[in-house]
């Protein structure tokens, strides 16, 4: 794999909280312009891995390489500035700020005021529901609206890489396909996406590469469609159906 096509390379990551090690020796390579899915059961360490890419956990060992540069010692606010953006699984909007203010905070590090204004309009085009709610506090939004705002907020920094942690958990089924098609549009714009999902089938169907995590380890990897037809994978993670 040539270095130019790699957006983020996680090498031998062992991380956790305080003294507890939650994920161990994780090697995941994120290719530019692709969707990489990370699936696995609840508690397997998927969210911890994403937090680690952003520097929100304790890194015991390993390196996170972004465009050939080791970013594992950078504070989170600097990782945002080098073009990584993150939608956490929970608490992913500022509840007491309005929808508009949330979007402005997404663009906090940017200096191009005029373009930020235009991008907010552009985002409203992608998520029209937000337009109706601009002055409403984010804490009053429904689950689906909140997820859309969270994604919109993350896009406002004009990221090259977007980390999405279970973007459709606790979202009404009708809205799920809507959000997934938006994710498709995001990738089409050339943004690299890392998609964490507990619902393995849904994620593996849309992704290019898939990683399966279990108890803090990567236990399988491969193109999404291949994993979906892999006997061992079906047996262990999808159940017989």
């Amino acid at each position: 794999m040539s270095g130019d096509s790699v957006a983020i390379d996680a090498r031998g990551i062992t991380a956790g909280y305080g003294k507890a090690i939650i994920i161990e020796d994780i090697n995941i390579t994120i290719e530019k312009g692709k969707i990489t899915a990370i699936v696995g059961p609840n508690g397997s360490g998927k969210s911890t891995f994403l937090k680690t890419i952003f520097g929100l956990t304790r890194l015991f060992s390993g390196q996170i390489i972004c465009d050939g540069r080791d970013i594992s010692r950078l504070p989170p606010e600097e990782r945002n500035r080098i073009g990584i953006s993150y939608v956490p699984q929970v608490d992913n909007v500022f509840p007491s700020l309005t929808v508009m203010e949330n979007l402005e905070m997404g663009a906090y590090a940017r200096r191009d005021k005029q373009e930020v204004k235009r991008d907010i309009e552009g985002i409203m085009g992608i998520f029209p529901i937000l337009m109706e709610r601009v002055k409403q506090k984010a804490g009053t939004l429904s689950g689906g609206e909140r997820q859309m705002l969270a994604i919109a907020r993350a896009l406002m920094s004009k990221p090259r890489v977007l980390l999405l942690d279970e973007p459709v958990a606790a979202v009404a089924p009708k809205v799920v396909s809507k959000i997934f098609s938006r994710i498709g549009e995001i990738v089409a714009r050339g943004i690299t996406v890392i998609l964490v999902e507990q619902h393995a089938r849904r994620a593996l169907e849309v992704c290019d590469m898939g990683y399966v995590m279990s108890s803090g380890h990567v236990v399988m990897r491969g193109p999404g469609r291949r994993l979906l037809s892999d006997e061992k994978f079906i047996e262990a993670f999808l159940g017989r159906r």
Partner: peptide
Amino acid sequence: TKVGKALRAMADNEDLARVSGIKI
């Protein structure tokens, strides 16, 4: 003001403020 809003954002959720690029 931008810093004022960022202060409120930080009060809401410090980690999210950080990942949004706010220098807490």
